[in-house]
Simulated assay, not measured.
Amino acid sequence: MFEKRLFSLVPQATPYIMASVLFKWIALMANITVMWVLARILGGIVTDGLSAALAVDALAQAASPLAAAIIARAASIYLAQRAGDRAAFEAVRRVRSLVYDKLTALGPSYTETVPTAEAVQTSVEGATQLQVYFGGYLPQLFFAGLAPITLFVLLVGQAGLPAALLLACVPVIPVSIMMVMRNAKKIGAEYWGSYVDLGGMFLEAVQGLTTLKVYQADRSWHERINAESERFRTATMRLLVMQLRSICVMDLVV
């Protein structure tokens, strides 16, 4: 549901996300081709007892397909990354355009609806965060569903039980992601709230610096900003710890 709403907001990024998934799938197929050719050669050496000369001859015959598959894999990985970068660029540009159009529609009195600090942070830091989401997460999410099906179709004729087990373990990945996201949502909200509060406080202090100096209240504001900065640092460290734990959980699942 959330991904559907994002696609409706940033339709320009959809073709690039699909292109990134396609190139990732091509890279997977090229990698499978390399492994299949090498397995055939090694299988001939082990089971058929090929001599060293025959093994070298078989490897020489397979050199062209191997080289083509390796080149295709490298090119596909590069193109997938470029397509992901383009999707991220379109998403960031679209979000910043929406924020600007909203502020323009509100007019000079936009501060009564949206604080200046929040508008700046949303269009800068908030939009930048979408780069990882559109450029990396969404393409990998769709590819993670496509890759197991592809492997199952290719392996089911050769090894039915391992292929079925691999396919049955696919739901473990989204389930583990959902478990991690339940904790990440709370920590992320705390991080963003602290970030917005600190930015708003700093902007307010800069705008009213002359008044603070006149009434000699700059020291108290300095202490308040230091305390909020420490709160933001703590929230950032919690977010980084959560991300590290998420990576460890995903590595364990894989």
Rank of each mutant, 00 (worst) to 15 (best):
E90K: 08
L66Q: 06
A88R: 10
R73T: 08
A80M: 14
D85Q: 15
L79P: 02
L98N: 05
S64E: 12
A83S: 06
A72D: 06
R96Q: 04
A75N: 05
A72M: 09
V92D: 04
S97F: 05
A83L: 02
R94E: 12
R93T: 05
E90Y: 01
L66K: 03
A83Y: 04
A75D: 05
I77R: 14
L79F: 14
R86F: 00
V99G: 01
S97T: 14
P65V: 03
V92Q: 14
S97I: 06
Q81M: 07
G84Y: 05
A91T: 07
R73G: 02
V99A: 11
I71H: 04
R86N: 02
L66W: 00
L79E: 03
L79A: 08
A91V: 06
A83V: 05
P65I: 12
V99Y: 13
Q81A: 10
I70Q: 12
A68Y: 08
A80L: 09
G84T: 08
F89T: 14
A72L: 14
S76T: 07
A68M: 10
Y78S: 12
A91M: 06
G84K: 04
A67V: 14
S97A: 13
P65C: 01
R96K: 04
L66M: 13
A91L: 08
F89P: 04
A75F: 06
A88Y: 01
A91W: 03
D85C: 10
A80W: 09
A80G: 11
R73D: 09
V99D: 11
A74V: 14
R94S: 03
A67W: 00
A69D: 10
A80E: 11
V95P: 01
S97M: 10
E90L: 09
R82P: 01
S97Y: 10
A83Q: 08
Y78Q: 13
S76A: 10
Q81N: 11
R86I: 00
S64I: 15
F89I: 12
A75S: 08
R93C: 01
S76G: 02
A80D: 07
R96S: 00
G84D: 03
I70V: 15
S64F: 15
